[in-house]
Simulated assay, not measured.
Amino acid sequence: MAVRALDALRGVEGAALVARHVEEAADPKAALAAIRLVGADLFAPHLLADAVLLPEDAMAVVQSFTVFPPPVSVPAAPPAGPAEPWIAAWRDWATSALLARFSGGETLVPEPVGAPVAEEPDASDGSDGSDGSGSDWQRWSVRMGQLSPLALPGLDGPVHAAARRAPLALARGASRAVLRRDFPTAMRITRWLALLAAEGARLPLDPAPLVEHLRLLGGGPRLALDAAIAGRLLAPARRDRA
């Protein structure tokens, strides 16, 4: 599924997205699960490359929510509740919100509450840690990386506000992941830096060489899709600087 989205983002002739993926799959149910896993990034070609969302593709996304329905109740944000259901709820919301935007329908899931916060603030520097700048910036940045499918234009909310408040924590998190050779995590965090750059924010590092570095060193279609999305986000920023 990530490969199909990547091909569509690159404008590969004849590239199709979700409907054909389900139709051609040996296990259609597994293909629907893949739609949920890739989530909002399925809409990257429509947001960043002017691809047209076909009605059958929209229906396949709806079908994925029907076969794998989200929880009825909205999960509580950590630390009041476990992180995994809350992260899944935000990712489902992003998929649903973009589906509604392109299909003209209603969102299939409600917007969750809250955004990642640093749970162990560093009182010595006068920070309350809520911007990810305290002693827990490592875990905060990883949590933001887990929410990287939200790092797309056309989406906005408390998670995006948290990213805008803490570009330094994001830069630290991405750099730390690179040093640990955890390239998928580094790429996911770097997507937020790319989105902030596209919005015109001043950043403590230039994400463009970092994206290229991770694209070359990392592997797999998921990282390649993240890198392609980040590259598309950065293209207008690079033109503006030129």
Rank of each mutant, 00 (worst) to 15 (best):
V211N: 02
G134I: 02
G129R: 03
P221Q: 01
D206T: 11
P204R: 01
L214T: 07
A201P: 06
V113D: 12
I229Y: 01
G126D: 04
D122R: 13
P184G: 04
A198V: 08
P110E: 01
P204C: 05
A161S: 12
R222P: 07
D182C: 10
L170V: 05
R191T: 07
F102V: 07
A224L: 09
I189Q: 08
T185C: 12
P121G: 01
R172L: 12
V117Q: 11
S141I: 02
A230F: 04
A171L: 00
D136H: 06
L193C: 05
A186L: 03
L214V: 04
E212D: 12
F102S: 00
R202V: 13
G105L: 01
E212N: 09
P116R: 01
A118F: 10
Q138D: 15
A166R: 07
G129E: 04
A162N: 02
R202S: 13
H213V: 12
L195Y: 01
P121E: 07
L150P: 05
L210R: 11
A161C: 10
D226M: 09
L223H: 05
W137Y: 11
G132Q: 06
S148W: 10
E111T: 12
D226S: 10
P209G: 03
L108F: 05
V159W: 03
S148K: 00
A230D: 07
A171E: 03
D136W: 04
A194F: 09
A174M: 09
A171Y: 10
D128P: 02
G173D: 07
L196E: 00
A186K: 04
L223V: 12
E212Y: 07
G220C: 00
G154P: 06
M144G: 04
G126K: 07
W137M: 10
A174R: 06
L147C: 06
M187K: 11
V211R: 06
L196Y: 05
D206P: 04
G104V: 01
A151I: 03
L225E: 02
A163D: 01
P112R: 05
R222F: 12
E199T: 08
E106M: 12
L168C: 10
A161L: 14
T107F: 07
W137D: 09
L225V: 08
S103T: 02
P110M: 05
A174Q: 11
G200K: 06
R139H: 14
G145E: 03
R191I: 08
V211C: 00
H213P: 08
A230G: 12
Q146R: 14
V159A: 02
A224I: 10
L196A: 05
P184L: 05
G231D: 05
D226V: 01
R191W: 08
